[in-house]
């Protein structure tokens, strides 16, 4: 590999980290707030696909990408509401329900999204951070999704709110001890449903970045497990919103290696590079999890962290 090609690949990966990482960021922030309230939503994979479709439809019919973004968030919240309500019934397992929501979300998206496969929708604008450079590679790599800065702000706000606001404390209390919350007169169910819905809205923004920014169209293969990776990513991030940001960039970078190599003319092993984020997720789960103790930072009510 010549230095020039190497440079292109590195720049491609850095730019790709933001481009590919945006859905990871939003879904993991959504899962973070859901899990902080003591519930798991594996269905965010379904939310991601469904909201990507809804966002694309919204942008296509209204002509404005931002209405599409709102539609994506709202549809994500709607699907999450179903999850939140269903899991509030006694004896309903949130992991199993998450699988059901995953399948339902994908089914609904494919069903309703059939007419959307051909057309082009207005895209979320880019923010150009590469204006200083004369190299077209750099300029292309550093034009980033306008939603991404919002995601950064959201991560900061969430981190601050969990620590300092009444709302944040209530969510954490419900997630750490349902009994304490009940004793204090807080409705555990209401808080959990609200947190799940908020998580669905945030994850829906990830769907919008898929269909309205990168890859920027609607098709049935749009999401293949990014939502699920993001759920696993929250464990890696130890339920801290700011860590979710770094983790999303790391995974985005891993996902961008394949395309970056390909655009630099190195095509071999494309599928192997595509598998990299999944393998990395597994590796990280293996390293961070432990059977002997509860994970540090895990909400106590969470079934998954055992």
């Amino acid at each position: 590999m010549t230095p020039d090609v190497l440079f292109d690949v590195v720049i491609g990966v850095i730019g790709g980290a933001v481009r590919v990482g945006a859905p990871f960021l939003f879904v993991s922030l959504g899962e973070c707030i859901t899990e902080k309230a003591g519930r798991i939503n594996l269905g965010l994979e379904g939310v991601l696909v469904f909201s990507a479709m809804a966002g694309f439809a919204g942008a296509y019919w209204s002509g404005s990408p931002w209405i599409g973004v709102l539609a994506a968030g709202a549809s994500g919240a709607l699907l999450a509401l179903l999850h939140g309500l269903a899991c509030s019934l006694t004896r309903v397992n949130d992991i199993a329900m998450g699988i059901a929501i995953m399948l339902l979300g994908a089914g609904l998206a494919f069903y309703l999204g059939k007419p959307l496969i051909q057309p082009q929708a207005p895209q979320i604008p880019s923010i150009f951070l590469g204006e200083w450079s004369t190299s077209p590679t750099v300029r292309a790599a550093l034009s980033i999704n306008a939603l991404f800065p919002f995601g950064i702000v959201l991560a900061i706000v969430m981190a601050w709110a969990f620590a300092n606001t009444r709302w944040g404390l209530v969510i954490r209390m419900v997630g750490d001890s349902a009994d304490a919350a009940r004793a204090q007169g807080t409705s555990v169910t209401a808080v959990r449903v609200a947190a799940t819905v908020a998580g669905g809205f945030i994850a829906g923004l990830g769907g919008a970045s898929l269909s309205l920014y990168y890859p920027g169209s609607w098709n049935e293969g749009l999401s293949s497990g990014q939502g699920l990776i993001a759920v696993a990513l929250v464990i890696f991030a130890r339920w801290r919103p700011l860590n979710c940001l770094w983790a999303a960039l790391l995974f985005g970078g891993a996902g961008a290696i394949g395309p970056a190599l390909q655009s630099a003319g190195i095509g071999g092993g494309y599928y192997l590079f595509a598998a990299l984020p999944y393998a990395l997720t597994l590796l990280i789960l293996v390293v961070t999890c432990s059977p002997a103790r509860t994970l540090k930072g895990a909400p106590m009510e969470l079934g998954m962290s055992r």
Partner: peptide
């Protein structure tokens, strides 16, 4: 069993791999 990794997530990730 040995590492405490959630089997639902890992089995699905194995599927993609």
């Amino acid at each position: 069993q040995y590492r405490g990794v959630n089997e639902t997530i890992s089995s699905l990730l194995f599927g993609y791999i």
